[in-house]
Amino acid sequence: MTIPQLSIFIENRSGTLITVLNVLKQAGIQIIASTIADTAEYGIYRLICSEPMRACEELKKAGVAVALSGVFALEIDDQPGRAADAVKTFSEAGISITYMYSFLLRGKGILVFRTDDNDHAAAVITSNQLKTIDESALTALV
């Protein structure tokens, strides 16, 4: 039910982000969505991309601190209020969203998020018949 996300440790120095992006460019990896959780000294760069396994290997070879983890990707209508409805469902189930970001895919909004209880969240998604996208939907895109 989840899609792979890359988490990359990036120091707050000039040149560190471009190093990562250049590795992806040379490997022909397409970035679909990304966000940086930044602190005063470093950031965690989260990335949804084509061929995440290969992207992770290429980055590791380049010496980058990178890891793969699973995140939910919920498809919602591209209309006002839909994100609020989705989050409300989890909130009512007592699930906290650890982080969230979004992007547009074929006229649909995609909410990417991780929760403090992914098993519970998966059950909520199933029982509420919420629509998630899987890795193949992303692969079809690029």
């Binding site: 996300q5 988490s7 440790f9 959780a37 930044d38 602190t39 470093y42 950031g43 965690i44 989260r46 590791k60 010496g63 980058v64 601190a65 990178v66 890891a67 793969l68 983890s69 699973g70 650890t98 982080y99 991780r114």
Partner: peptide, 17 residues
């Protein structure tokens, strides 16, 4: 940090902290 110890749990600054 050692590359092999940077795992999926480090997707938030809280884990690094």
């Amino acid at each position: 940090i050692r590359q092999e110890f940077f795992t999926g749990v480090f997707d938030t600054p809280a884990a690094v902290d």
